[in-house]
Simulated scan of single mutants.
Amino acid sequence: MVSERAADVTPFLAMDVLERANDTDDAIHLEVGEPDFDPPDRVVETAVESLRAGNTNYTAARGKPALRRAIAAHYDRTYGVDVDPDRVVVTPGSATGLLLSMAALVDPGDEVVLTDPHYACYPNFVRTVGGRMETVPLRPADGFRPRTSAFADAMSADTTALLLNSPANPTGAVMDGGTLADLVALAAEHDATPVVDEVYHGLSYDVEAHSALEYTDEAVVLDGFSKRFAMTGWRLGWMVVPPTLVDAVNRLAQNLFICAPNFVQDAGVAALETPPERLDAIRETYRERRDLLVDAVADWGLDLGYTPQGAYYLLADVSDLPGDAFDVADLFLKEAGVAVTPGVDFGEEAADYLRLSYATDADAIREAIDRLDALLATVDR
Rank of each mutant, 00 (worst) to 15 (best):
V2G: 06
S3W: 07
S3H: 08
E4P: 02
E4Q: 04
A6Y: 09
A6S: 03
D8A: 15
L13Q: 11
A14T: 06
A21I: 02
D26W: 02
A27W: 13
L30E: 08
E31I: 03
V32I: 11
D38S: 12
L51K: 12
R52G: 12
G54F: 06
Y58C: 10
Y58I: 03
G63V: 01
R68D: 12
D76Q: 13
R77S: 00
D82T: 09
D82H: 10
V83S: 12
D84I: 07
D84G: 10
S101F: 05
M102L: 08
G109N: 12
H118I: 07
Y122M: 01
Y122G: 12
P123M: 11
N124T: 04
G131T: 05
E134I: 12
A141G: 01
G143I: 09
P146H: 14
T148L: 09
A154S: 03
A157V: 11
D158V: 08
T159D: 06
L162V: 07
N165G: 13
P170W: 01
P170C: 03
T171C: 02
T171F: 01
T171P: 05
G172W: 01
A173C: 04
V174W: 02
G177V: 00
A181K: 13
D182E: 07
A187K: 07
V195R: 08
S204P: 14
E214G: 02
Y215M: 11
Y215D: 01
E218K: 08
A219W: 00
R228T: 11
G233N: 15
G233T: 15
R235I: 04
V240A: 05
P242W: 05
D247V: 04
R251A: 13
L252H: 14
P261V: 10
V264Y: 06
A270N: 09
L279K: 14
R289I: 07
V297C: 05
L302S: 11
Q309E: 02
A316T: 15
P322N: 08
F326Q: 11
V328N: 13
L331G: 10
V338E: 07
T341Y: 08
V344H: 11
Y353C: 00
R355Y: 03
D363G: 05
I365R: 09
I365T: 11
A368N: 09
D370I: 05
A377K: 03
V379N: 03
